[in-house]
Amino acid sequence: MSSIKDVALKAGVSVKTVSRVLTNYKGVSAKTKLKVNDAMEELEFYPSAAAQALRGQEKGVVCVITEKLTTTPDSFDIIAGIQHECEKHGKLLMIGESGGNVKSFSRLVDDFRRQRAEAIIFATVYHKKVSIKESFNKCPLILVNCYESILRHPTIVPDDYLGAFHLTKELIKLGHTKIAYLTLSNDIAATPLRTKGFRKAHQEAGLREDNGLIVEGVCNDPNDEFAELENALKDIMSRPERPSAICCGNDKMAMRVFMLIRKMGYKIPETISIVGYDNYKIIAENLVPKLTTVSLPYFEMGQIAAQIAINKELQINTKTQEISGQLLLRDSHSSA
């Protein structure tokens, strides 16, 4: 890498003159500034961030630690939202992947602190409980899509309860009184919240939900999490009063349900309505018919996290913010 001495030699000036140009010292002529800037460009010289920080000129760095968010297309919007805010405020964004490894997380925290991070954002692929051992008294931590058992840091999570409530309410409004719910694993934080929303919509409408229609739609098969889905569907559809609508735990499950339910001879949405959750666009917008679903507000969650990271006044109020997704009405559901 080129040094400040290399720049001085190339421009034919002293090291002190180069330093003055870097600090916008007013006593340097325009001609000299041009020579120094041309030399820096030709040598691909960039001033040290650490040196700039010592002079009070640091750009400001926001750091993100993820598990594997950068390679997960349905969750990547969290990063996009953070990036959007950082660009707007002229902040440098640094991203590190921990892969879910505790030691990697701790190492990244240390590395980012050495980079003089203003704040660190920790974002997970799905809504889950986490345990943070490190202290963040000087450099604040913001949690996105995850939470601790004891609230210590600003936390932003999706409002899974409200999303499922509005989705179920839409089906009930269209006359569906028998609605099946194929859930994700109960180990996922979103599942009990969405189930609660599903039940609440029934209660508000004066309907008694059928517990036999609430079935876990995933299994522990490492090669196919939906390996038992066909059997679950057969059981549900063979009941004396079969459901007229099926809520799926996510859009990936809904895609499999589309195939299986057609294999069983049903038409979507003519004989049965099917809805998903997540708004995984590559699925929801390409299924035929297009999938009614609820979006996960990842972009907005990322924006809010970055706003807290940048604004010290927002860091004072440690609280949990639940962000509502959008109910997206497409063509996979109709009147009962």
Rank of each mutant, 00 (worst) to 15 (best):
A201G: 08
A227G: 00
P158R: 01
T195A: 04
P192C: 04
L151G: 08
C219L: 11
I214K: 03
S149L: 04
I236N: 06
L182Y: 09
L229N: 07
I188Y: 12
P222M: 01
F226I: 11
D235Y: 07
D221L: 03
Y161A: 02
Y161E: 13
K200E: 15
I188G: 00
G175K: 09
A180K: 06
T183S: 08
L184K: 05
F226T: 13
F198R: 06
G212F: 04
P240N: 04
L213H: 11
A164S: 15
A245K: 08
I150N: 06
H166Y: 14
H176F: 09
I214G: 02
T195M: 12
R208T: 15
R152V: 04
S185F: 13
L174K: 13
E225T: 14
P222H: 02
E148N: 02
R194I: 10
M237L: 15
E204N: 06
L174G: 03
T168N: 09
V215L: 03
R239I: 02
P158C: 03
P192V: 03
T195W: 00
A245D: 07
I214R: 01
R152E: 11
S238A: 14
K169Y: 05
C219H: 08
A245E: 09
G206F: 04
V157Y: 00
I188V: 11
P154N: 14
T168Y: 03
E148S: 06
G197P: 14
T155C: 12
K169V: 05
A232H: 10
S185C: 05
E228K: 14
A227C: 05
K200Y: 12
K173P: 10
R208E: 15
I150H: 07
I214L: 10
P222K: 01
K196D: 14
G212Q: 09
H176W: 09
G175I: 12
P192L: 04
A190W: 01
F198T: 08
S244N: 01
E209H: 15
